[in-house]
Design a binder for these strands. Structure first.
Lengths: 232, 232
DNA sequence: TCGACTTTGTGCATTGCTTCACAAAAGCAC
DNA sequence: GTGCTTTTGTGAAGCAATGCACAAAGTCGA
């Protein structure tokens, strides 16, 4: 039977909550493997590394799936979060750019495990085309649109050099893709309605360096002068 | 001459701002290469993909480095942001776990370019130890503490399997490291004062899947029933 | 020197997220 | 049933980030 839930879920779930749901899911899967049947918000929050009030508010956005005095049924909650995240269906993913990073991604087990199926590996370099990686044969980027269309690819991972990223992005969005995971260190321009998530190793290191410097200096930096000899 | 800046910088810079500074830096470096001498907040914001008011507020946290009616001096702003982020000094980075991902990271050019020097590659697998990657010889994880101490490593990148990550984390924090970039899909427990940043490919894909599903369904999902045969 | 124009820096209202604190709901023992 | 314990779900307060809108500060041409 198909029925509408009246409260919640109509107004979208807050982004901050969506970003944490996979964390809860991972913690829950660990518990399920260890045979835990129910879990309190306190324990689950601990495992996920968040505050328990936040956890409860996050889950309340999905619906009222807990039992007061008891906690949450692990299996049921796994199902509900999976469904909300869209993991009960299969997603075909194409990886463009099969350098070191692209290979690492193709071989990364975490993809296949949760409804993400690598449906294509593409590269512009003829020396790489034809290689077999993680059970797939690398295809030439000329085939990009055809691969997307024929295999129902809805998520594209860009692992190309920075210079090629925007062009790849243009082509895949033109082919109808609306979800992109970008590893290239550039800000991609995309049409409205296209989601881009960015993973940028260099930025993460720079943020760490900032905090590390703060810790080392015990406070703000003292020197404000422009170094000698540098023209302002 | 060493002098104290009175306003700003005393109260820490907002996290949201720190996370965007590397973005501005990258855009500015591009402009510097193209020979641009000054840039307005409007143009820089466009290049970095943010709102110009936000950009100005972000930069105002560092100090008052613009010129009204003109804009910002590109070189000077590059220097100021670099200094604030701690990129004017060298950071020794060790990468633990030399699988596909570790190799990709070791070969990633973006590290060396901005003050991050790879000072060690370590792995637990004897078959990998001794390999030469990106000019470095892989060492055994037994040497972890000694490498950290002797080479002044202050940032550790964990690219091990999930099962090994917490143990590596414990050892490096015990050895005095307070900045960790974690690629393993686990929530690391660390002592107070240690910063952990997490990069989790699987989580990024799940967030994309959530939005993709929303787009496809044109709204919330309709079925709320627990599927037949599954015991709740 | 003056006035027109440009662009920064920021006060303020708004929005969104987090955290607290507690009433309501459920189980359990007797 | 009744009362005690546990734990959820949420109103409300507090905090942080965003974006608007404009005064202040500078440039430039005449």
């Amino acid at each position: 039977m198909i029925r509408r839930i009246p409260q919640a879920r109509d107004r979208g779930i807050p982004d901050a909550t969506v970003a944490r749901l996979p964390l809860y899911l991972r913690a829950l899967n660990g518990m399920a493997e260890r045979g835990t049947a129910t879990v309190s918000s306190e324990d689950l929050a601990l495992a996920a590394g968040v505050n328990s009030a936040k956890l409860r508010k996050d889950l309340s956005h999905l619906g009222s799936y807990g039992t007061r005095g008891v906690g949450y049924d692990v299996q049921y909650l796994i199902y509900q979060i999976s469904r909300e995240l869209g993991l009960t269906q299969d997603w075909a993913v194409a990886i463009v750019g099969v350098g070191n990073l692209g290979r690492a991604l193709a071989n990364y087990g975490g993809f296949a495990s949760r409804g993400f199926r690598i449906a294509g590996l593409l590269d512009a370099d003829p020396h790489v085309v034809g290689d077999r990686i993680a059970g797939l044969v690398v295809e030439h980027t000329d085939e990009l649109e055809s691969v997307i269309r024929k295999r129902g690819v809805s998520i594209v991972v860009i692992a190309t050099p920075a210079t090629a990223a925007q062009q790849v992005c243009d082509r895949v969005t033109a082919a109808g893709v609306t979800s992109i995971l970008n590893f290239a260190p550039v800000v991609l321009a995309v049409p409205d309605g296209v989601d881009v998530r960015k993973v940028d190793l260099s930025i993460e290191l720079q943020i760490l360096a900032f905090h590390e410097q703060r810790k080392a200096n015990g406070g703000p930096i003292m020197a404000e002068e422009w170094p000698d000899g540098v023209v302002m």
